[in-house]
Design a protein around this nucleic acid. Structure first.
Lengths: 201, 201, 201, 201
DNA sequence: TATGAATGAGCTTTCATTCAT
DNA sequence: AATGAATGAAAGCTCATTCAT
């Protein structure tokens, strides 16, 4: 009998080890050899677990989506009051750990590839769906806030929700490019303060 | 030295014709042949104007920066009142023409390359400098607005300025990925309304 | 030594199961995995019975020769009269069953490999020896026929025998390439009629 | 201006130089590097003239068909009497020059590939068409011969023609495998004598 | 100056073979 | 004995770059 291996687990392990390389070199520049080296296996072994190079990216892409859902889910389910939940969401969305940074970079890579029709999976569909869900949740919070008197009645909750959730990527990307350019924690804190105090001023 | 002027002009022409290809295929996937075809010249001719493939991207990068400066400059210099100027800036920053879209995509490509240390020019320095200038201008406007009573005194103008100018890229990127996802004109309008009416509510 | 007998039997079984794959894909294109699948064993198991991929082909080659000898032997030993024996030989040589077709294709593969000096076993020696034997037998029949007045005295029995036995492969190969091109049974029958009625006309 | 090259001519040149390698190693075993070496060019250059490795084989295949048509055309158009034309045809079909031998081997390679559905072009269609034409011509000659009293009235000209033209490949293949096995010139001569003297005996 | 033919480094992918279990 | 996970050599193919014309 050969070595007994949980193929799915091993696949996931390799995908995980590939993250750092994919982030550092980019999908196109990263070679299978790079990925094999990072995973500590031979080049051929990669092909036991992934049919093509693109499939590795798809697997990593899955990890990213799972991570996104997890981190947002955590942020959303803790609080009761709409302003607290919104603050937590913004906080979480702009919270960049070293770990997450790699995922963010790969995520942008995927983004570009799909923008060009070079994507292989259903990236756009998943992103769109995630964003739609998130937009509805955020719009709901804003509506709740409006009802509580936090925001004026004529605020377009849906449009504002869209702006909010799409803006996060911009802030994060700028921060990643040059971390000395600004203090993201401070900016986040101040923005939350600004955003939540809107109606009270 | 008319020769040199001529050569620079031709360089710029080729760079301009390369934009569409670079946006559509991405820097790595676009071949010199693609670029030569787009420019209507032979492959060898490209090398009379650019030493390497990377140099083409640098030239295009220059075009992008010039375009960014031009469009922002236009937005900033027209109005007198801080709220009008801010509205114009947001408007302009979120105004995506077909032409600009190509530049945006290449800009993201460059962004990623530099995020990875694969960039060849002074992209980060230029972006940082542009953003610094812009941040100062926007912070100034917010301060002016605070003085006019538009925003509360304890608003951190600098932090808010950072959020504002970095948020644009996020909104634009999301919009480009799926234009059916939301109506960017409407979102922009509503966000401006929200942002500027902060203190009045 | 029952072990060895067992092993030989298993070898032969695997070789037999490999025939269909080798015929369908060709020796070079057929992978060990293909052969293992066809034999219903694991890839590693193949190497318990064959040192290399080439050895599998050699084993199959042996099967082919055994089959050739068997089918010709059957044809040759039944009749008494030379013309009957010749007719039976031609008949048998041009009789293509589905089963035999696979062997024929592999046989051609082997042929080509040996034509190029890429053969590993004693294919050429065996073929030459088989053909020599057959040629002698056929020449003998023709001589017998000449004596019986079937063919003219000045017919070169040996040369004609060579033509006859080498012609079979050509007819069969053409037929296999496009079975709709001609009715091999009819052609065989007519050729036998022509060949045997030579002197009577 | 770059070196001016007649692309079609160069293509043909490379295809010609590839013949020897393809015959010696076989299509699958011959590497692009082998072919490039034989042509005295770099590996990349091959791809200026052929999109894929298969395309090289197709080009060579074209050469083979042209050669077949040429040699048969020559044989067929010289004589007037049916028996002379048939004799010339058989002669030509069994006449193996060193040059032709390479083509024959490649032809068999193609044959096998197409037998397996691995062929890329219209090999089967071309072969079938060539053989059909040839069969008609030969059948015509035999009919003419019958009318002249060379062969008995009840000979099936069509079936005999099929046997004749398909048998040649068998004779040639056997000869190529082991040239010491028989004297093909002698066999050819004797077979012609046998075939043409049928009715006279 | 303009060109594209020529090139080989470097990529992804396949697969015979080995070997730990 | 039986297995399939692991491997790297080797293949086809691409493309930035050079250079003769």
């Amino acid at each position: 009998m050969p070595k007994i291996v949980d193929k799915d687990k091993r696949r996931s392990e390799i995908a995980h080890k590939a993250i750092e390389v994919l982030a550092r070199k980019g999908f196109q520049s990263a070679t299978i050899q790079d990925i094999a080296d990072a995973a500590g296996v031979g080049k051929g072994t990669i092909y036991h677990y992934f049919k093509t190079k693109g499939e590795i990216l798809m697997a990593v892409s899955g990890e990213i989506f799972r991570e996104m859902e997890r981190s947002l889910g955590a942020a959303l389910l803790r609080m009761d009051e709409p302003e607290e939940r919104l603050a937590a969401l913004i906080q979480e969305s702009l919270n960049i750990t070293e770990e997450l940074e790699h995922l963010y970079i790969i995520y942008t890579d995927l983004w570009l590839a799909n923008l060009r029709g070079q994507g292989q999976g259903d990236f756009i569909a998943v992103i769109t769906s995630l964003n739609d869900d998130l937009r509805k949740i955020v719009a709901r919070m804003i509506e709740d806030g409006k009802r509580k008197g936090l925001w004026a009645e004529d605020i377009d909750a849906d449009a504002l929700a869209v702006y909010l959730i799409t803006s996060f990527d911009g802030v994060v990307f700028h921060y990643m490019l040059d971390k000395k350019a600004f203090d993201i924690k401070h900016v986040t804190r101040e923005f939350i303060r600004f955003f939540l105090r809107h109606a009270k001023a």
